[in-house]
Design a protein around this nucleic acid. Structure first.
Lengths: 102, 102
DNA sequence: CGGTATCCTATGGGATACTG
DNA sequence: CAGTATCCCATAGGATACCG
């Protein structure tokens, strides 16, 4: 639904990037600390499939980093890149808004 | 997709409210100034149907105000309530983010 | 544990036509 | 102009099963 017209607007770009139901919630969680796949899965109550897709997308966009330690069973941690961590202000303001108005 | 678990988090609430493809873009436009239906329609490149639905939702949530002046043809202006205008910071932060990183 | 692969459904949203 | 009403479709996302 994001059209060409939106792509020239910085706000439109941000919405196109994290303006879905859970991308920003992933960022919110990772702003707190790096987390495992299953931790995110539980926190967000999202399906495995969707979480995997969103994480891949966010990784591809340079928002999220994936780090795997060679253990068995597998252990993977997701954290924010600098670009991802820069969402801190947005998330903080949203939190402030939510507390005050919702 | 927004689950119960998210409703206890202020950020989750905000995302549930404006975390779709165009609600926040409507707010962005109205932060600039009050606008008519058709202005929003053109600016957002969204279908009549969708815009009408989102505006109703935002009005119902107390974010947007609808003012009709009894003219012919009809003239309707949408503007932000105080609750809606409070999104200024969030939108500004998103704009700053978009300019810097996207 | 951290995914991928299928299948399937709900629904968001476009296009079009019509009305006060 | 500012919508409402239909119809229709694409796709986001859930559920489930399976794998390294």
């Amino acid at each position: 639904m994001i059209r060409q017209a939106e792509k020239s607007c910085p706000v439109g770009k941000v919405v196109a990037l994290v303006g879905d139901s859970c991308s920003l919630l992933i960022v919110r969680d990772l702003l707190d600390s790096a987390k495992r796949f299953s931790e995110l899965e539980n926190s967000l109550s999202v399906s495995t499939r969707t979480l995997a897709k969103k994480l891949k997308l966010l990784e591809h966009e340079g928002i999220v980093m994936r780090k795997e330690t060679k253990d068995s069973p597998a252990c993977v941690r997701y954290s924010l890149t600098k670009k991802g961590a820069a969402f801190q202000k947005v998330v903080d303001d949203m939190r402030a808004y939510g507390k005050k108005y919702l």
